[in-house]
Design a binder for these strands. Sequence first.
DNA 1: CGTGCTTTTGACGCGTATCAAGCAACGTGG
DNA 2: CCACGTTGCTTGATACGCGTCAAAAGCACG
Lengths: 217, 217
Amino acid sequence: MTSALSASPLADLAAYTGSVRRLDARSLLFEEGNHRDHLLFLDRGWAYAYRTLSDGRRHVSDVYVPGDIIGLAEVWTDAPGPAVSTLTEVVAVPVWREDIKGLAKRSPDAAARLATALAEAAQTLSLRATSLARHSAYERVAYLLWALRARIRPSDGNDRSGFTCPMPQSVMADALGLSVVHVNRSLKQLERDGVMRKHIHQVEILDDGALERIARA
Amino acid sequence: MTSALSASPLADLAAYTGSVRRLDARSLLFEEGNHRDHLLFLDRGWAYAYRTLSDGRRHVSDVYVPGDIIGLAEVWTDAPGPAVSTLTEVVAVPVWREDIKGLAKRSPDAAARLATALAEAAQTLSLRATSLARHSAYERVAYLLWALRARIRPSDGNDRSGFTCPMPQSVMADALGLSVVHVNRSLKQLERDGVMRKHIHQVEILDDGALERIARA
DNA sequence: CGTGCTTTTGACGCGTATCAAGCAACGTGG
DNA sequence: CCACGTTGCTTGATACGCGTCAAAAGCACG
């Protein structure tokens, strides 16, 4: 959700408002199903979006890292969105729906950037769906961490040997449609295979090429 | 992908070009991975998009019905798209990338409509991902047909008792991440449960409420 | 009136869920 | 400074949903 909008008119809007929200880890940013009158420009920390089915099954539909925009599609339409919670302490800047719509009306260039961000989001979602539909558990875990890594800037603790990742296995499980137990087994297998290792807040890459090969299956 | 753009500036562009493509059933509209310099406004017939994994596994990422736009996100960015094939005979109108970009530059309103269409597509994809990640096979089949039905206009053979659906079980399987055999079993179970019945080119709704309940899990 | 799709059904095996424990790390209050 | 709750990780045993293989029947179309 971010690349097309970093250092863009939307970021400028965020800078203008001046109001900054700081939140603890494990706190709720948006409730499930509610109408959204603003989005959040995520400056620091991690968050994730999720839906809950009637019987308690949960799906984590997105994970947000610093620089991401939370809820762009939801603020653009009136459809009910998923819930959003923080994983770590978070610093975020709200941008209001009317300001975004106004910006798009005034500036064709800004509107085009918004469209680009949304188009990229759609393509990311489509690839993620392919992983959910046709990858094995082992491949899904590899894909999640490989795709995540591609989105994290080097400045946020991402170098050749690994990256920061404060995502518990329970959240990975709900993102991948797996049980926690099986996520753990898959991670252990990736470790035994010399591909990567996940610690509590850190992912260590052992074999970059192998990881990509498995993730792109 | 369609609602925000029907009877919109994009449709006008399509009308302008005048060039209409007619294709047989089971023919290729776009190759996998190629750059797209145009999208297709689908006037008549059905089509579907799919990706193929290295070992032959296939995922059907989208199904297109009359009125849909094929490849809006792909024409807006440079990322390689999935392949697209027809299910039936098709009538489609191409709209060129530069024309769309030009339209968005000239008209903030058109750009806003494009963004809306893309935002709706992202939300649809997110819900589909939830179904893939957390629904049982039985629920996934119900969700696919329930969501499909919501997109088909009454004029295209959709009324209270059923709708036209020229989608073989093999394509349903690849859309849902299931085997053909298990799609068949799930359909038979839905039939035994008095929910719906699928014939070759037609879906018959037996219990609307039950279908929605199962699809929305 | 084949010939190729598509649907259907049965037998069997595998991948992943579930259940059940136990352990490690960490923060908090007595 | 230690007891304890909480959160997250790990592992084994067992169960089940769905895949795979195989085969046949129904249908459409040339």
